[in-house]
Amino acid sequence: MRLVPKLDLARPSRRYILGYLLLAPALIMVAAIIIYPLLISLDLSFQNVKLARIGAARKPFTLGNYEKLIFSPDFWMACWVTLKLVLVVASACLVIGLGSALLVNNRFKGRTMARLLMALPWAVPEVIAVVIFAWIFDSSFGFLSWLFIQIGLADEMITWVSDPSAAFWAVALTMIWKGFPFVSIMTLAGLQSIPEDYYAAAKVDGASVFQRFRWITLPSLVPVLGVTLVLVVLWVFRDFSIIKVLTDGGPLKATTTLSIMTYDQAFGFFKFGYASAIGVVTLVICIVASLLMLRREDKSLM
């Protein structure tokens, strides 16, 4: 009788097998939770499915959903609104987050409380934050309209969620308030990793505050800011609850982003095939945008 040799996973040449075995449960879980639904959505996007049912026969293959997207003015309007929202929110979060991180990185009395207040909006659930801002933007007794009247920026109460332009800025301000603390926390962690010797040497050489920020702080923060910006852009792309609760995509589709349009087509009009096509296109846009930003970051580090 021939004995089967025992597999010794402790040997250096076979340790990679143990690593694969330990990673296998996580990979299977990721495939079941993320990859499999993506494949289902991709398959649905090539079918004319009104209402998806488990076990139903597969519909014929068609490109009709993507053809409809190309010639749909609502889709291009949603793309434009999403792009504007990404540019406004990501830029504002980057500037405010960087400034607040630089502020609380200094030593002063009450710094711990300042850091706590800076991170507080990120800890508040989105729905609660939207309810708070819904009261602030109220057209009858909202605080922001009252403030604009007091400082002379407006003559009467502003109908924030009824006017298309005002509704867009209401959504953008809510997202900025909710998103900038994440940038602040990530940037503060990057600032803490910069050695103090760099600044001490720069001071000895006579570098000003702006020069130290330009030649030491910013280059050291490029990797952190690059990854943070990618995460913020992806968050704005996929965010749903803020817009849904505050404006529901209106008025006149002024705040209808790709995520809102996907939801409306799937659960409002029960066009799951068309909604899946919108979701697939959104995913492709997010992947391309992320790759472009990460590639630009890599070039800046070279």
Rank of each mutant, 00 (worst) to 15 (best):
A167Y: 05
S13R: 15
S300D: 00
P181N: 08
V89W: 02
P60F: 01
I40T: 12
E67T: 11
P121S: 10
M1T: 13
A201G: 08
I216P: 03
F168C: 07
G250F: 03
T82H: 06
L38Y: 09
I54R: 11
F46Q: 03
A254L: 04
W169D: 06
V86R: 02
I285C: 08
A32K: 06
L294G: 00
P60M: 06
L42M: 15
Y263H: 11
G55P: 03
G279M: 04
K59V: 05
A52K: 06
L153Q: 05
L94E: 09
A275R: 01
A266D: 03
G190A: 12
Q192E: 14
T112R: 14
M113S: 11
I243W: 01
D155Y: 05
T82R: 08
C79I: 14
K271A: 07
A167E: 03
I216V: 13
L39Q: 10
V245K: 02
A134F: 09
G97R: 02
A90H: 05
L22Q: 13
L218I: 15
V222L: 15
V204F: 07
G273V: 05
M302I: 02
E196Q: 15
F137Y: 15
P12S: 11
K244V: 01
P60H: 05
L116T: 15
V183M: 15
K203V: 09
V30P: 00
I242Q: 06
I243E: 01
T257E: 01
L246I: 04
T282C: 07
M29N: 06
R58V: 13
I70F: 12
I260V: 09
L23P: 05
S162D: 12
L221V: 07
L218F: 13
Y198L: 15
K299F: 00
A277I: 02
A277Y: 02
S100Q: 09
E67L: 14
F270M: 13
A167I: 02
V161C: 04
A172S: 13
N105G: 06
A90Q: 11
I260A: 01
D43K: 15
A31I: 11
K109M: 09
F182D: 06
L69H: 06
G226N: 06
I132C: 09
V288A: 12
F240D: 03
L38C: 14
V233R: 03
I28W: 08
S300P: 00
V224M: 11
T282S: 15
G226Q: 05
V161L: 14
R115D: 04
S259F: 00
F267N: 07
L144R: 05
G19P: 10
D138F: 07
F267R: 04
A92Q: 09
R14C: 07
Q265T: 10
T255H: 07
R14H: 13
Y274S: 05
